[in-house]
Design a protein around this nucleic acid. Structure first.
Lengths: 343, 343
DNA sequence: TTGTAAGCGTTATCAA
DNA sequence: TTGATAACGCTTACAA
C-alpha cells in the first residue's frame, strides 16, 4: 500500500499537520523536525495525493491552456511564448488537449473544479456556438486565436487574434496586384463556419475588389475524410483541381500545412513554382521558410498574441475585470513562391 | 458558489447517495428519480468534482500517456494509433506532456496517486538514468520508442522500439553502397547519451565496415542553444559544415526535422539535391515525403509500435505480468534525395 | 513549535 | 429502491 501522510507522521512520531507543514514549506516548523520528516518522506517514497490536496485547498496558482485539435505548429509557437512569460510569474500552468469532437467549455468547467484553476487560455476552437457554456465560466479566460465577435456580458475575459477575413483579403489582393487573374483557392471543408469560412470570404472579396469574378471551379474544398489542415489534404485538394482541368496561374491555400501538400502536387505534375504557378499560404509557419522554394505566406504575430494572452489573463485574475481584446495585423511574407505575371 | 452534490440532493429532496447513483449510472435506482436528478443537475450546471471522485474511488479505468519533450510528429503518429486502439477498449486515457527538464518518473508517480491510474505509456525520454524511480512504479507500464537495455526486476513492464544503432547503420551503409566515400553526419548534441549517441555509433560502425575512416571534421553536432531535433538546428549544423569547408558528397541527418533544415542550407548555397549532395534523414515523417525532392529516410513502424504498446499494457493490467518487449525493424525509404556516385 | 479535529465533495457500505 | 454515514488523504483553524 502507498504511504500516506499518516504513515509519515507515525514513523516520525509527529502529527499529520506537522508533516503537512513540512511539505508545504510553512514557516512555523522546527527546521530539525522538518529535515527529519523530509528524510523519511524520501525514504518511504511518499508522494502527496494531489486529489486530496486539490479538494481541500482553497485556491491554487494554476492556469490551464486548452488546445483544440491536434498537433499544430502555430499553436506550438504560441504556447512556447506563453510558457516563457508564465515562468516569470508565480503562476504555474498545464496544457490540456481537447479533441475536435469534445466541447472545450465543458472540459474547462470540469478542470476549474478539479484543479481550482485561476484562469484559462483557450487556443483555437470555439467560433460562436458554445456561448451558453462559456458564460458559465466564472474565472477569467482568454480566447487566443479566436476573434470573439459577440460579447459575453457576465464573463471576465479577453481575446487576441488576427482578422482572418482581412488577412486573407491581403494575400489574395497581393496575388491580384501581381497580375494574376485566375487564382485558385484551397479552402476549408465546405461546411466550415469558422476561420475557414472567414478566409474564404476574404479571398472572394479581394477578387471582387480587383474586378475578378469568383469562379466556383477554382475553389477546392478540404476533404472531410482526411485530417483537416494537413499536407495530405492540401495535396489532395490540389490534385482534384488539376483533375478537373481548372485553369489558373496562382493558388492560395488557407493554411501553411495545406500549401506544402499543394506544392508537392504541383511538382508531381512536372510544373514549377513560381514559374508555372504562384503559390501562397497562411499562418507563417517555419516550415514554409524551409521549403524549396520558400513559400509566400501571412505571418501571424505569435509572440505578440502569446504574450498578450497570458499578460491579460494575469491582469484579469488580479482585477477581476475584463481586459479589452485586440485584433492583430498579420504580416505578408513575400518569398520565392510567388511572382508577377504578364499576359 | 458552485453547486455540490449536496445542493442537488437537497433540491431534489433525496440523499446524496441517490444523486451519486444517478451520475454514476448505477442500476439500483428508480428511473424516474434518476431522470429528475439529471434534470436539476443540468439546471444548476452541476459538475462533479473530480478530485473528490478520484480521492474516493478505488479504481479507475484510466491510462496515461506521458510524452517527453515538445511537439513531435513522430510521437503524434504513435499517439494516434494508441488512441484508435484504446477506443476499442473500456479504458480511457489522457495525454500529459513532460518538459525536457522534468523527470517523467516523478510525474508518473504523482499521476498514479492522483488519478488512480491503471497503466502508463512513456513516449520518449528516459535512457538508463532514472532506473531507481522507475522501479517505484508498481503499475504496468510500457516504454515506447525507448529500448530498455537493462531489465527492471520488480516492475510489470514492456518496451517497443526500433534499434537506433542498427537502423542508423542501415542508412549509412546504404549511402556507402551508393558509392559515397565522404559522408557527413548531422548528429545530436555532443554530450548526448541517448538515441542521438546510438545513431552516431551506428553511422561510425557502418563507415568502418565499409573501410571508410571516420572523419571528425564531417560530424556536425547540434547546437545546444537551438531547439534540439529542429529544422533550425539542421540548417545551422549544415551551414557550419559548409563554413569549415568540409568535403563530402552525402549527408545523413539523424532526424527528419534536421534533414529539412539541412536541405535548405544546401539550396541556399546554390547546390542541388541529389546532384551535388545526397541527403538522408531518419524517422520517416510525412514531411520528408512532401519535401521537394522527397527525402530518403528510415521509417519507424509507428503503427506497429503504437498498437503493440497499448495492447501489451492492457494485457499486463489483466495478468499483472510483464510482457516481452520487442525491437522493430525500420524501413529504408529510398526516395529522390539520394543517388549513386561514380568517381 | 506542535497537536487536535473539522471538513473539502465524493463514493461505498450497510441498514432500512 | 433509498438513506445515513464512514471513509478517501489532505489542509487549516484553533488550541495547547
Amino acid at each position: 500500500m502507498e504511504p500516506t501522510i499518516k504513515d509519515i507522521a507515525k514513523k516520525c512520531g509527529v502529527a499529520v499537520s506537522t508533516v503537512s507543514r513540512a511539505i508545504n514549506n510553512h514557516p512555523d516548523i522546527n527546521p530539525k523536525t522538518k529535515a527529519e520528516i523530509m528524510n523519511t518522506i524520501k525514504e518511504m517514497n511518499y508522494v502527496p495525493n494531489n486529489s486530496a490536496r486539490n479538494l481541500k485547498r482553497i485556491e491554487s496558482k494554476t492556469i490551464a491552456i486548452l488546445v483544440k485539435g491536434h498537433i499544430n505548429h502555430l499553436f506550438d509557437s504560441i504556447i512556447h511564448e506563453i510558457e516563457k512569460e508564465i515562468n516569470t510569474t508565480k503562476y504555474t500552468f498545464f496544457l490540456q488537449h481537447v479533441e475536435d469532437y469534445e466541447d472545450e467549455a465543458v472540459i474547462a468547467l470540469q478542470l476549474i473544479k478539479e484543479k481550482r484553476l485561476r484562469g484559462i487560455i483557450f487556443l483555437g476552437g470555439f467560433y460562436e456556438k458554445n456561448k451558453t457554456r462559456l458564460k458559465q465560466i466564472h474565472i477569467p479566460f482568454v480566447l487566443c486565436t479566436i476573434a470573439a465577435r459577440e460579447s459575453l456580458e457576465d464573463c471576465v475575459y479577453s481575446y487576441f487574434a488576427i482578422d482572418d477575413y482581412h488577412e486573407s483579403y491581403k494575400v489574395t489582393d497581393y496575388l491580384c496586384k501581381l497580375g494574376h487573374k485566375k487564382i485558385a483557392i484551397l479552402a476549408a471543408t465546405k461546411d466550415d463556419c469558422s476561420i475557414g469560412a472567414l478566409r474564404l470570404q476574404g479571398y472572394k472579396k479581394a477578387l471582387e475588389d480587383n474586378n475578378i469574378e469568383v469562379d466556383e471551379g477554382l475553389i477546392s474544398y478540404m476533404e472531410t475524410t482526411i485530417p483537416t489542415y494537413s499536407m495530405e489534404n492540401g495535396y489532395s485538394a490540389m490534385k482534384r483541381l488539376f483533375e478537373r482541368k481548372a485553369d489558373f496561374t496562382a493558388v492560395y491555400c488557407i493554411s501553411d500545412m495545406q500549401v506544402i501538400g499543394a506544392c508537392k502536387a504541383i511538382f508531381r505534375r512536372g510544373k514549377k513554382i513560381p514559374d508555372d504557378y504562384s503559390v501562397a499560404g497562411f499562418d507563417g509557419l517555419i516550415d514554409t521558410y524551409y521549403y524549396e522554394p520558400s513559400i509566400t505566406t501571412i505571418k501571424q504575430p505569435v509572440r505578440e498574441i502569446g504574450k498578450a494572452s497570458i499578460n491579460a489573463l494575469i491582469e484579469m485574475i488580479k482585477t477581476k475585470k475584463s481586459v479589452p481584446g485586440k485584433v492583430y495585423d498579420g504580416e505578408l511574407l513575400v518569398r520565392e513562391s510567388t511572382r508577377a505575371i504578364n499576359e
